[in-house]
């Protein structure tokens, strides 16, 4: 690259308009030994940017992370196993209860009353049933009338005291 090319790129860089490729070209140029004296002021910046990229984690870090991840996996599997075991235990308990204590039949469900057997079968039977029912009604009404007469007599006797 010519000095003019570098100048253009530098101007573009400081304006914040360079692409990553152009920035890589500038970094390569300033890492070299043939930096034009007119650009020397900017060389430390690009050296600094490169040096900052050297900071890295120790090689054992990756192994440590993978070990931790595997430990997390084992822990997760153990949690899942415990959860499944709990669900299975509850299911076995429910099945056991159902098998050992079957549902008792309900009284209302098993005994159905056959009301048809009390129905009168002939006209004579129907007449007899009706007569018996009316006689029962008449005796009840007669009893009530006697009670009412007694009550009225008592009221009359009580009222005569105030005359």
């Amino acid at each position: 690259m010519t000095t003019q090319d570098i100048q253009k790129l530098l101007d573009k860089y400081f304006e914040g308009e360079t692409s990553l490729e152009e920035e890589a070209s500038l970094k390569r140029y300033f890492q070299g030994k043939d930096v034009d004296p007119s650009f020397r002021a900017f060389q430390p910046l690009f050296q600094f940017l490169e040096s900052e990229r050297e900071a890295s984690l120790s090689p054992s870090f990756e192994t440590r992370i993978l070990t931790q991840i595997q430990a997390e996996n084992r822990l997760r599997m153990r949690r899942i196993t415990i959860y499944i075991a709990r669900v299975a235990a509850i299911a076995v308990m429910i099945i056991g209860i159902v098998v050992l204590f079957p549902k008792q039949p309900h009284m209302n469900d098993s005994i159905a009353i056959n009301w048809a057997q009390y129905e009168p079968q002939t006209d004579e039977e129907a007449m007899a049933e009706t007569t018996a029912a009316l006689q029962l009604l008449a005796s009840k009404l007669n009893g009530s009338a006697r009670t009412a007469t007694k009550e009225l007599d008592q009221i009359k006797r009580s009222a005569s005291v105030f005359k």
């Binding site: 890295s56 870090f61 990756e62 992370i65 993978l66 991840i69 595997q70 996996n73």
Partner: peptide
């Protein structure tokens, strides 16, 4: 899985560290 994690995620470790 662990292998995919190792290939896709772990390489970013130094950038994260910095």
């Amino acid at each position: 899985n662990t292998q995919e994690f190792q290939i896709q995620v772990l390489p970013v470790k130094d950038k994260l560290f910095r």
